[in-house]
Each structure stands twice: as structure tokens, then as C-alpha cells.
């Protein structure tokens, strides 16, 4: 019996909202390794290239990362000679419109949200990234663990400058 099974929808919504805000703060503070801990060992991080993309196997994705590839990214971002991180990229994001979705896997909680995030590096114009998060969560301890974080950028199919940090 998962913890969420005994909670009211309002309590679940409050709990996932707190979780998403905490997650956003970790990313905005560049606390990559703390953020990695939020995932289950098999958890996936996926940003499809197309909104209607059926799978990440037969089509390229903006991000499609398991624990290993997420760790490579986190490590690279902190490497001394990551030239494109001189100076580092900084982001601030707002997560809103949080609502519970329908889980297809028993015990999971699905959360939909919308994000707006500004990214800044060098004296280049700030970049606005925006789209939709879909989190599949499992209860863990007092909170949750991420089974899958899916990001659908509204301009996923357009031309992009590099996307180095996690969305």
C-alpha cells in the first residue's frame, strides 16, 4: 500500500506541489547531484523532439537520459574545462498550473505542470524556455521519487541553441 493511497486528493496535490517546487529550486541552484537523488535507480529523464513522438528509441530526442547519462551531464557541467560553462549558465524557473493526472501504473502519481524558465549566460540575451512537465512519481520516505520526468518544450521542434543544463 503506497503512502498516497491513504491521502486525500487535496493532500496529494499539496505534497506533489511541494516536491515540484523543491525540485525546481535544486535545478535553479545548480545542485545537480542532489537533484539526481530524486530519481528511482531506473528513472528516466526525457524531452521528446516532437510532441507526438511515440517513443525515444526510433526517433531523436532533445534529452533521453538514464541515471548514467544524467550523471555524465552533471559531472561535465562542473568540470573545470567545460569551456561553454565559462561563465556558467544560470536559470530561474516558475512551475505552475500543477494538477494531478491519471496514473496507468498502480501506485504511481502522475503530475502535470507548466514551466517558464529564463536562462542567462555571458551578455547574450536571456533565453526563455517554456513548456510542460509530466512527472511520474512513486512515494518514497516523506516525499516522492521520480520514475520519469518528461519535458515537452513548446518549441521542441524549432532550431535551438545548446541546451546544457537540465530543464
Amino acid at each position: 500500500m503506497s503512502a498516497t493511497a491513504t491521502m486525500s486528493p487535496a493532500d496529494i496535490l499539496a505534497a506533489v506541489t511541494a516536491f515540484l517546487f523543491e525540485e525546481a529550486a535544486l535545478l535553479d541552484q545548480r545542485r545537480w547531484f542532489d537533484w539526481l537523488e530524486l530519481f528511482t535507480p531506473d528513472g528516466m529523464y526525457w524531452a521528446p523532439l516532437r510532441p507526438d513522438q511515440p517513443d525515444p528509441i526510433n526517433h531523436v530526442s532533445l534529452f533521453y537520459e538514464d541515471a548514467m547519462m544524467r550523471e555524465v551531464r552533471a559531472r561535465r557541467l562542473e568540470e573545470k574545462r567545460a569551456w561553454s560553462q565559462q561563465p556558467q549558465v544560470h536559470a530561474a524557473r516558475i512551475v505552475g498550473n500543477i494538477r494531478l493526472g491519471t496514473a496507468t501504473v498502480p501506485g504511481e502519481t502522475v503530475v502535470h505542470s507548466t514551466f517558464l524558465m529564463a536562462e542567462s549566460r555571458l551578455s547574450l540575451p536571456q533565453r526563455l524556455l517554456s513548456g510542460f512537465y509530466t512527472h511520474r512519481l512513486l512515494p518514497r520516505g516523506d516525499g516522492f521519487a521520480i520514475v520519469e520526468k518528461r519535458i515537452d518544450l513548446i518549441d521542441s521542434e524549432e532550431v535551438h541553441a545548446t541546451l546544457e543544463a537540465f530543464l
Binding site: H59, V60, F63, R73, R76, A82, W83, S84, A161, T162
Partner: peptide, 27 residues
């Protein structure tokens, strides 16, 4: 099919805007 799927993986690693390799090139 897995031969095609490997070239997808390769593109994700090397050519995606999110590649860990390419940003330092572009920089």
C-alpha cells in the same frame, strides 16, 4: 532495426542541442 536505433542513440549523444560533446565545440 537495432542498427538504426544505434544511430539514433549516437545522434542523441553527439548532435542533440543537449549533447555533452557539442556545446564546447560551439563555444
Amino acid at each position: 532495426e537495432d542498427y538504426f536505433q544505434r544511430s539514433i542513440t549516437y545522434a542523441n549523444i553527439v548532435n542533440s542541442p543537449s549533447s555533452n560533446v557539442m556545446p564546447d565545440d560551439i563555444e
